[in-house]
Each structure stands twice: as C-alpha cells, then as structure tokens.
Write a protein that binds this DNA or RNA. Structure first.
Length: 279
DNA sequence: AAGCTTTGACCTATA
DNA sequence: TTATAGGTCAAAGCT
C-alpha cells in the first residue's frame, strides 16, 4: 500500500457515494478511460496530488490532507482508523454500515508497492465482540469459508470458488472465486482472517453482464449485501460500478425488506449447521 | 443427483 | 536456469 493514497483508496473502492456525490472530494474523482478492458495487477493508480509523498499511508498524512480537512463528511479516528461512511447519511441512515476500510501494513520495500490492495474489515463485529479489539487475537472460529464469504461479501453476483491458497504476502488464506455467469471473466479474491473476518477483497476483471435479479436468492449466495464496501483492484472496475455496484433506492429498499425477513431464518440455519459441525 | 467447497498438484510469471 | 510465490485445475467429498 505504500504508494496508494487515501484518495486512490476511496476512488477505487467502488463506494457509490463518490460517484453520486462528487463534492465529497472537492470535485476530484478518477478519470474514466472507457477502455472496458480488464486490467490486472499491472494497473497503476493515476497520479494524484497527495499520493507522491509517502511510502505508507499514515493518519498524519490523512490529517494533513487538505481534501480531508475540507471535507465535513469524513472523520477518521486517530486511534482506531475507523472510517465511517457518513457520506451515506444524506439519504439513508447508514450508521449500521458494518465495514471499515484500512490500509494493509506492508513492508517498505515490498515489490507489490504499486499494487492496489485494500482491506475491508467488519467493523461492527469488532465493536460488538471484545475479542476483536485485541490485535493479534488467536481466537479461532470454525466456520466454513464459503459461509463466511457469502455472508460478508455477497455483491449480488454468483461466484464459484475454484481455489484457496495460503500466500506468503499475507498470513490469511485467500479464496479464489469466478463469476458463474456464462462467459463472464470476472474474478475475485477474498482474504479471510482466522477469526472469520474478511480482510481483503480484490476484484479482477469486469462483469460483462448485468447483475442478476434479487427475486430469487442464488443457492450458495445466501445474502444480499450492499456492496458499497467492496473494493476493486482495477479502476475499470469502479468505472463499471454503474453495473456492478450501484444500487438504486428502490433496490436498496427491496434489499432491506428481503434481508430483514431472511436474516432470522438464516441465522437459525447457520446455528444448526455449526452445531452439526461441532458434533 | 446436482452443485458446491476443499485441497493437493500443477502451471506460470517473476526475480 | 532455477527457485519461489501466486494462481488455477480437477478429483473427491459434502450438503
């Protein structure tokens, strides 16, 4: 993350509000190329005013940033690094928005410095569970990976897991997913911590199809989540956010109602499932 | 029975 | 050329 600025991070995050509310960054937003071709790891972030100074992303950088200082929307906790998505507050109450963006700690000389990787963490879980407040907790929760993934990273698309691997770059295993839509080359890599939290989601390639309808829940993808928290590796991905990541108000409302109805039932199923595993 | 995840082996890119 | 790491394949097992 050494060369990735906060604005890179925001711009690439696919967070809807940055497209809808460009004033958030003082009018700055990533230039759109329109190439449509997926870029993989070679993609570099565009030159940005505040991206050239530091090797790492620090909160002092944040605080020094005129972009952030001028923004009344974002308040970053110097102690937790929590980044509340208050930009949503205009139309919806997202105080229960469970995600947190963080930069990954990285070696200063890491060769992957130019690679854009962003961490997505379950803030709510941390806030509710004291164990999560302890850095480096070795708490182990035996939860099948597919369960964790579908719970936290469902973006409305169908994903098929085709591999999992422990990579050296991170202590957490990576799960590899392909879009199940025919001829769609979109993939995503989900990094999951030992306690079940998703620590990183990387999107590769773009969907060449619209998002499937919500009316019927896809098997294996049991929850519909607002994907505003999901980050993409390529700028093309955020460019395609009109297809991939934007939810209309109507969709959000229907999502909420469906989610509310479904949640309890799903919780029960999961509890039963975990019980069975424990036996 | 179908569709899914798991996981070790294999492939490929890079230093 | 070789070693290493990341990504993918595919058979097996599970739900």
């Amino acid at each position: 993350m050494s060369s990735t600025s906060f604005t890179d991070l925001l711009a690439s995050s696919g967070v809807d509000c940055y497209e809808q509310n460009e004033d958030f960054l003082g009018g700055f937003y990533p230039e759109r190329t329109g190439s449509g071709l997926p870029k993989f790891k070679t993609a570099q972030p565009p030159p940005l005013p505040i991206s050239q100074a530091s090797h790492g992303f620090s909160f002092s950088d944040l605080l020094d940033s005129p972009l952030l200082l001028s923004s009344s929307h974002s308040l970053i906790s110097p102690t937790t690094g929590a980044f509340p998505y208050q930009c949503f507050n205009g139309t919806n109450n997202h105080s229960d928005f469970p995600w947190q963006l963080q930069t990954q700690p990285q070696q200063p000389n890491a060769s992957s410095a130019l690679q854009e990787t962003y961490a997505v963490q379950d803030l709510q879980k941390k806030q509710e569970d004291p164990v999560h407040r302890e850095f480096g907790s070795d708490r182990q929760v035996k939860v099948p990976s597919y369960m964790v993934v579908s719970r936290n990273s469902n973006d409305g698309y169908g994903w098929k897991k085709y591999g999992q691997k422990q990579v050296k770059k991170s202590e957490n295993p990576r799960s590899y997913f392909k879009c199940t839509y025919p001829n769609c080359v979109s993939k995503k890599i989900v990094e999951t911590a030992s306690d079940g939290q998703i620590t990183e989601i990387i999107y590769k390639g773009s969907h060449n199809h619209p998002k499937p309808e919500f009316t019927k829940r896809p098997s294996g993808s049991r929850r519909m989540f607002n994907t505003s928290s999901v980050v993409s590796e390529t700028h093309e991905q955020s460019e395609n956010s009109s297809i991939s990541f934007e939810y209309s108000d109507l969709e959000q409302k229907s999502f909420k109602s469906e989610y509310g109805e479904v949640e309890e039932e799903e919780e029960q199923l999961e509890i039963k499932r975990l019980k069975r595993e424990g036996e």
